[in-house]
């Protein structure tokens, strides 16, 4: 469904040019959850942003293609891209409160994708939005609809973001560290929620995190990135129980908590 082939991106706002990612290959089939794990500078977020078309001018894609259902996202027109992004491919981000527009009611933000991609009446949209807010397990969805982001907790905002991302029933959800900024107890619930959607919608998930434990909890396959390159990839069991590369071994080893 999604195939990133030999993608290389570099930053052209420094001298010399800074490498972003080099020859990254990722493939996600329908209904698959693939985890992208890496530390800062590994290029994981850059990869996600390039799929969504959210990279800035000085960041250039030097080679490679991003195929979504066999269409190269890097070569389609802006119009065609607008039909896909937010509709077939959605993204949720790390900081829930700052990812939402502070001046817009939460319900309206959930509806936004519907407005852009589907032809529905105002009332139908509102109904759909409230339905979505209920699906993400927010209590009193019709009251939450009228709230502003700052009136909600971090966990609730993240649920709102998920509702907004899911409302068009995307085929692929890109989640960039969605639980990193949340408390441990909330984290597990959000992960369960994403998992549920993945099952009920048969949706593909690209889950980006620096936290191996999270990836193991929610993903089938994992790709390990280090300094812009793919270091290792495979099923979660393989990579965790049998890490082949040094770096992967290090990552896995740390999380097996030895007393210092």
């Amino acid at each position: 469904m999604l195939e990133v082939k030999n993608l290389s991106i570099n930053f052209y706002d420094t001298t010399p040019v800074t490498k972003g990612i080099e020859n990254i290959n990722i493939s996600i089939c329908e209904g698959e959850t693939v985890g992208i794990v890496g530390e800062s500078g590994s290029g994981k977020t850059l990869t996600a942003l390039s799929i969504m078309g959210l990279i800035e001018d000085h960041v250039k894609i030097d080679s490679g293609e991003i195929l979504f259902n066999n269409k190269n996202l890097l070569q389609i027109s802006a119009k065609e891209r607008r039909k896909i992004i937010g509709n077939d491919i959605s993204m949720i981000f790390q900081e829930p409160i700052s990812s939402l527009n502070p001046l817009m009611k939460v319900g309206k933000q959930v509806e936004e994708s519907l407005k852009l991609h589907k032809n529905m009446t105002k009332d139908d949209r509102k109904k759909e939005a409230i339905k979505m807010l209920e699906l993400v397990k927010l209590p009193d969805a019709n009251i939450i609809y009228d709230k502003y982001p700052h009136e909600l907790s971090g966990g609730m905002c993240q649920r709102v973001m998920i509702a907004a991302a899911m409302i068009c029933h995307p085929k692929l959800l890109i989640a960039d560290e969605p639980t990193t900024a949340l408390d441990v107890t909330i984290q597990k619930n959000i992960l369960k929620l994403i998992s549920e959607f993945h099952e009920t919608e048969n949706m593909g998930v690209m889950f980006i995190s620096h936290d191996l434990r999270v990836i193991r909890y929610i993903c089938d396959k994992v790709i390990v990135l280090y300094k812009g390159k793919v270091v290792e990839s495979g099923t979660v069991e393989d990579v965790f129980n049998n890490p082949k590369e040094e770096y992967t071994k290090k990552l896995v080893g740390i999380k097996n908590g030895k007393r210092k």
Partner: peptide, 14 residues
């Protein structure tokens, strides 16, 4: 801090 860096710093602190 990054996970691998965290590990180094904690070891240093200990």
């Amino acid at each position: 801090l990054d996970v691998t860096v965290q590990d180094n710093i904690l070891s240093l602190m200990m």
